[in-house]
Simulated scan of single mutants.
Amino acid sequence: MAGKPKLYYFDGRGKMESIRWLLAAAGVEFEEEYLETREQYEKLLQEGSLLFQQVPMVEIDGMKMVQTRAILNYIAGKYNLHGKDLKERALIDMYVEGTTDLMGLITLYPFLSPEDKEKQLANITDRATKRYFPVYEKVLKDRGQDFLVGNQMSWADVHLVEAILMVEEKSSDVLVAFPQLQAFKERMSNIPTIKKFLEPGSQRKPPPDDKYVETVRRVLQMYFSVKLN
């Protein structure tokens, strides 16, 4: 029997959090090794474990996988979360890419200066309510189904509920104008595997704090300031 997937990343969200979400939604138990020192990171480099010298890295099914999208694609395909045919997979990929764009704004947020954080917060809310959430609201309304694609939960649904909760942490009333998304969030949050992941004590990570930011900077030697364009 294959062992549990092992995740190599920091003790925080970042690009690994969507991988945690997808594994958890699929009901897959996983282990984690947190990068806390530069030496740990350099050891992975010297071993050749990081193909492009980047994390996240996931050991799964005898592979050392890097590149977040590739890892998520593999997990989605392995656990029947990537649609039943090519057309469904194309729709799922489109929705995932849109959600990823929105989540990228939030992932960048903790690394910004206080001044840029204020601008980014307004940007997150604006993009969510004017560009991304209206799309998913219409898809759910037009389909009249519980899920974005097909008749069962897919990677797109998991990614969207993760994004909704992330945006709500920044703006608690962001779903006021989106009744379909409110109902969707409620349904998804009560799927047993996801409900378990949302409970205290799970492997879900809290919003990034200063300690997380400093650890990432120290391990990756990122001592420059991230600036908004």
Rank of each mutant, 00 (worst) to 15 (best):
residue 205 K to M: 13
residue 97 E to A: 13
residue 35 L to V: 05
residue 15 K to W: 03
residue 143 R to S: 15
residue 65 M to E: 09
residue 3 G to H: 11
residue 143 R to C: 10
residue 27 G to Q: 05
residue 105 L to K: 15
residue 168 E to T: 12
residue 97 E to K: 07
residue 51 L to R: 10
residue 226 V to I: 08
residue 74 Y to P: 04
residue 227 K to T: 12
residue 1 M to W: 10
residue 10 F to Y: 08
residue 105 L to V: 06
residue 49 S to W: 03
residue 122 A to T: 13
residue 171 S to F: 13
residue 138 K to D: 11
residue 91 L to R: 08
residue 191 I to K: 01
residue 121 L to H: 13
residue 61 D to G: 11
residue 5 P to A: 08
residue 82 H to V: 00
residue 170 K to I: 14
residue 205 K to Q: 15
residue 170 K to H: 15
residue 54 Q to M: 05
residue 6 K to L: 10
residue 70 A to D: 05
residue 20 R to H: 12
residue 11 D to A: 10
residue 155 W to D: 02
residue 118 E to R: 12
residue 163 A to E: 03
residue 164 I to A: 06
residue 43 K to L: 02
residue 84 K to Y: 03
residue 102 L to M: 14
residue 31 E to H: 05
residue 198 L to V: 10
residue 176 V to K: 15
residue 56 P to Y: 01
residue 52 F to D: 05
residue 227 K to Q: 06
residue 9 Y to F: 10
residue 144 G to L: 13
residue 209 D to M: 07
residue 103 M to I: 12
residue 41 Y to I: 03
residue 38 R to I: 01
residue 154 S to T: 15
residue 153 M to Q: 08
residue 98 G to Y: 08
residue 227 K to H: 13
residue 43 K to H: 07
residue 137 E to K: 00
residue 222 M to E: 02
residue 187 R to I: 07
residue 217 R to V: 03
residue 65 M to A: 12
residue 145 Q to V: 12
residue 92 I to A: 01
residue 99 T to Y: 00
residue 64 K to T: 14
residue 163 A to Y: 05
residue 56 P to L: 07
residue 190 N to D: 10
residue 150 G to L: 09
residue 105 L to F: 09
